[in-house]
């Protein structure tokens, strides 16, 4: 049954990948990328149970963190063309 769940997730990942390839806009691709990440978290978690090694959940957790940070970073980069400060506010502190 874990296998059925994992196949379901894999099929979803395939569909998401098709959307990522089709686009058409960059935002469709980022949406697909973000979703692919959350599906990977599920995939890794179920895979851990399938193999009888629930320690895989730690990997899933880290993947969720990286996926969120990555999506926000890409969006920020697209919007501002920069991940840090712009020239005007360079001398102002961040917090």
């Amino acid at each position: 049954m874990f296998l059925a769940a994992i196949i379901g997730v894999a099929v979803t990942m395939l569909l998401i990948l098709i959307r990522a390839l089709l686009g058409p806009s960059a935002y469709d691709r980022i949406l697909a990328l973000n979703l692919f990440g959350t599906k990977t978290v599920l995939f890794v978690s179920v895979l851990g149970f399938l193999n009888g090694r629930p320690e895989f959940l730690d990997l899933g957790l880290v993947y969720a963190l990286i996926n969120f940070t990555g999506t926000i970073a890409v969006l920020k980069f697209m919007q501002y063309g920069d991940l840090g400060w712009d020239e005007a506010s360079k001398d102002k502190p961040d917090v």
């Binding site: 979803t12 949406l31 599920l42």
Partner: peptide
């Protein structure tokens, strides 16, 4: 688990 798989595939179709 089966419900989760079905819903995620439906979402994939929707995308």
């Amino acid at each position: 688990l089966a419900g989760g798989a079905v819903f995620s595939v439906i979402g994939g179709i929707g995308i």
